[in-house]
Design a protein around this nucleic acid. Structure first.
Length: 357
RNA sequence: GGCGCAUUCGUCUAGUGGUCAGGACACAAGGUUCUCAACUUUGGAACAGGAGUUCAAUUCUCCUAUGCGCUACCA
């Protein structure tokens, strides 16, 4: 079996450091195993996705040198297929129509709403439309009542999967709600879309951020409902801000964007080398690796479980980004053959208008 | 609130039931240097806390704390 992995960013901003590392690990794994590295743009959140972001992400990937082995997949193009699959599950009785009106909440109090809901309602199966007869459900739908489609999660049992990094993960069904597959406006939701596309693209290994670890149980449920074998999952530790909080554009600005490093004249090879050491190590004291060495040495079982801090000090120009990244770049520049360095210097001088041909 | 994951120098990390707990970056002091880098020498710096298992725990188990994630008709 040939491995097939994908990097699947959602275009809601530029390529940031965390995504870049995810892309790197996927790319290395694909090359290491002689498989394929694919790219899928997850643009199902119409409100937040922009083509500007897509372009910026593509630029970032290009700079890092990760070209996809097949044509780029735009998830929004597959929405009709996802809808079809949701309907199929509905027909098979594995999903049901939920006629509960959509709750409108602002983005701000989502957490509060979750806590509130958790307090008042414990049973995840407690939905008045869950056991509606087919006739009643069809009648309401026929009358034009809007509905979302939810997966009918069994009352008893558990989902489990063996994560390549975090090991065995189990979760009781009672901890998982009847997740929404299709919104009342007909748009597929993230978990459905991901599973459908990963099946369609014949993905064998899903390597992504640890923020999806718990979501994986929901996805396993969808695979099971579809009668498909789930891929192997490997979740990556997160990259945190100096205060161990979330790294974000709003709070941390340009330091997290790949284009910043490109524009600052960093060597992509150096940045890759820096990036690979965030959450992975070969188990030896060597730290400088050529790309070929990385491909040879990279493996999922040397990935760490704990999050890494991307260290920088916004108030100190000497440490505007992680010191190790700066050092790594300098090290590459110092040891590079002059001939290889020349084009970079030339480009730099040209942009400063100090070069005459 | 519930569920889950994690915890080695400031940061990235190595590592083992008995180690002086190793390396890198950063930092400090000295050397070299016209200056700044580079280079070089040296230095400080860590097993979150508490129980338990054991002849012996940083390493195994449990508890606590802290951090992070998920818990949405976001992705």
């Amino acid at each position: 079996m040939n491995t097939r992995v994908r990097f699947a960013p959602s275009p809601t901003g530029y390529l940031h450091i965390g995504s870049a590392r995810t892309a790197l690990f996927n790319y290395l794994f694909a090359r290491h195993t002689g498989g394929k590295f694919l790219l899928r743009i997850e643009d199902t959140d119409l409100a937040r996705s922009t083509s500007e972001s897509t372009r910026s992400i593509l630029e970032g990937l290009q700079w890092l040198g990760f070209a996809p082995d097949e044509e780029i997949v735009y998830q929004s193009n597959n929405a009709p297929k996802h809808r079809e699959i949701a309907l199929k599950l509905l027909n098979e009785g594995k999903a049901y129509r939920d006629f509960t009106p959509k709750a409108e909440r602002g983005d701000g109090d989502v957490k509060a709403a979750i806590v509130e809901r958790a307090r008042e309602q414990k049973d995840m199966r407690d939905n008045p439309f869950r056991d509606l007869s087919k006739e009643e459900s069809d009648a309401k739908a026929g009358a034009g009542e809007p509905f979302a489609i939810r997966l009918k999660v069994a009352a008893n049992g558990k989902t489990s999967f063996e994560d390549a990094v975090y090991g065995l993960n189990e979760r009781d069904y009672s901890e998982t709600e009847d997740l929404v597959l299709l919104r009342s406006d007909g748009h597929p939701l993230y978990n459905l879309a991901v599973v459908c596309d990963d099946i369609e693209m014949q993905i064998t290994h899903v390597i992504r951020g640890q923020d999806h670890l718990t979501n994986t149980h929901k996805q396993v449920l969808i695979y099971e409902a579809l009668g498909e074998q789930p891929p192997i999952f490997g979740h990556l530790p997160l990259i945190l801000a100096p205060n161990k909080g979330k790294l974000s554009k709003r709070k941390h600005g340009e330091v997290v964007s790949m284009t910043t490093y490109r524009d600052a004249g960093f060597l992509a090879a150096a940045f890759r080398n820096f990036l690979v050491l965030l959450g992975w190590s070969a188990g030896e004291e060597k730290e400088i690796y050529t790309f070929d060495e990385l491909i040879k040495k990279f493996s999922l079982d040397h990935i760490h479980k704990n999050n890494a801090v991307f260290n920088f000090d916004a108030n100190d120009p000497r440490h505007w980004t992680d010191d190790k990244a700066i050092w790594m770049n300098a090290e590459y520049v110092r040891t590079m053959p002059i001939a290889d360095l020349l084009p970079f210097v030339k480009a730099e001088l040209k942009s400063a208008k100090l070069w005459r041909d």
